[in-house]
Design a protein around this nucleic acid. Sequence first.
RNA 1: GGAGAGGUGCCUGAGUGGCCGAAAGGGCCGGUUUGCUAAACCGUUGUACGAGCUUAAACUUGUACCGAGGGUUCGAAUCCCUCCCUCUCCGCCA
Length: 423
Amino acid sequence: MLDIRFIRDNKELVKERLAIKNFKELGLVDEVISLDEQRKKLQTESDNVQSKLNVASKEIGQLIAKKENEKAEEKKLEVSQLKSSLQPIFEQLAETENKLNEKILILPNLPSAKVPPGKTPEDNVAVKEGGQKKQLPANAAPHWDLAKKYNLIDFELGNKITGSGFPVYINKGAKLQRALIQYFLDYNTKAGYTEIQPPIMVNEDSAFGTTQLPDKEGQMYYVTEDKFYLIPTAEVPVTNIYRGEIVKENDLPIKMTAYTPCFRREAGSYGKDVRGLNRLHQFDKVELVQLVHPEKSYDVLEEMVSHVEELLNTLNLQYRILKLCGGDMSFSSALTYDFEVYSAAQQKWLEVSSVSNFETFQTNRMKIRFKDAHNKMQLVHSLNGSSLALPRIVACLLENHQTENGIDLPEVLHSYFGHSVIS
RNA sequence: GGAGAGGUGCCUGAGUGGCCGAAAGGGCCGGUUUGCUAAACCGUUGUACGAGCUUAAACUUGUACCGAGGGUUCGAAUCCCUCCCUCUCCGCCA
């Protein structure tokens, strides 16, 4: 959620930036500002009346104490008149606040000055490519065939148990998952992230805090009986750990990592990209979350990008890092880097991580703050990134490391997996 | 799921209708003392949104906030209702 004071003071800048994000309803900015002005006026009005009421009530108390009941009764009449004049002001104020709130929630986060313009994924800027391009054997297969050949994943069985998009990992397939999770978590905790195992269902407030709600409820599974959402990413429960907290400046940065299953309804995405592990309703992911001092957040973003990049390097995968253009960024992000790994057998890039700085967009909703050196309240900046999303990594590991005889696993996984080859 | 108790500031905890934004103690921060540390003593210590003043900060001031939301009353932390949560006992159970 954008800060209303910032919008007030930087109206034109806000519009310019929103335009970069390809946001069309720029008139909302003016609406929000005028609603805010109305709000202030109404509040001043109601404060004044309430102040009078408070004074009068005290006087009544004193009159009663002095046994001057008649005068007290007169005052009471006066008060009841004041009260009835207050009623419409309250209603207007509530209505204005609701409207303001509703409108301001529609505004996406402002892209940082570093965000390239553009409308579609085509306009994203590749900032780096790395890793080795693989020479695959002539009979190279896509991962769904490899998964079957080596009996790692049973997609049909998942259909039977739950539905499509819920694969069953079997035997070495299951162990590979476990090895990856363990490896990623160890890698992250070594870099100073605290491991968290959060709930994988969250309440409405949490889903609101990280901006899944309102608006994206269609993407989440919902447990109606208890009003819980299954998390689409660990970002939701982990960031919300600090919801409503005032942290010490010295405690920043707060670095957390968590493995969780993630659930996404992926409503409306049928057809092409859903084959095999490419797009699932349930998948595993290890996530990074940081809460940091506002002055440091862009350095931290770069640090997180290198952290994920280094992790990818150890897996010997060919990757590229994209800086997302304004039009392709998420609603809440100020700057996002996507990591894509080249799936040699499918001959396409698969997104395996997305690292973003949200600045104060989430923390303003969650009210995660600290007192700075001048004793002034400030919102912390929040960032998160995947490190990494399992299914596509598994897909790329299988495809890119396949040989005539099996799958050669990268060295870092040998001890976690217990073997160097899947055959 | 059933029965009971309770949710107050950073913490403990008092407060059952006006003098309560809230006692007391602890903690924190600042100061005095001190060779240093400790102790002792003094002082300070909420948030949000307005208004005034100001370049700004400081400051002054109004309103709201004692789990959340409603209600009663001239007046609510205090009384009533609903919900949420915590604790104890019972039941069920990985």
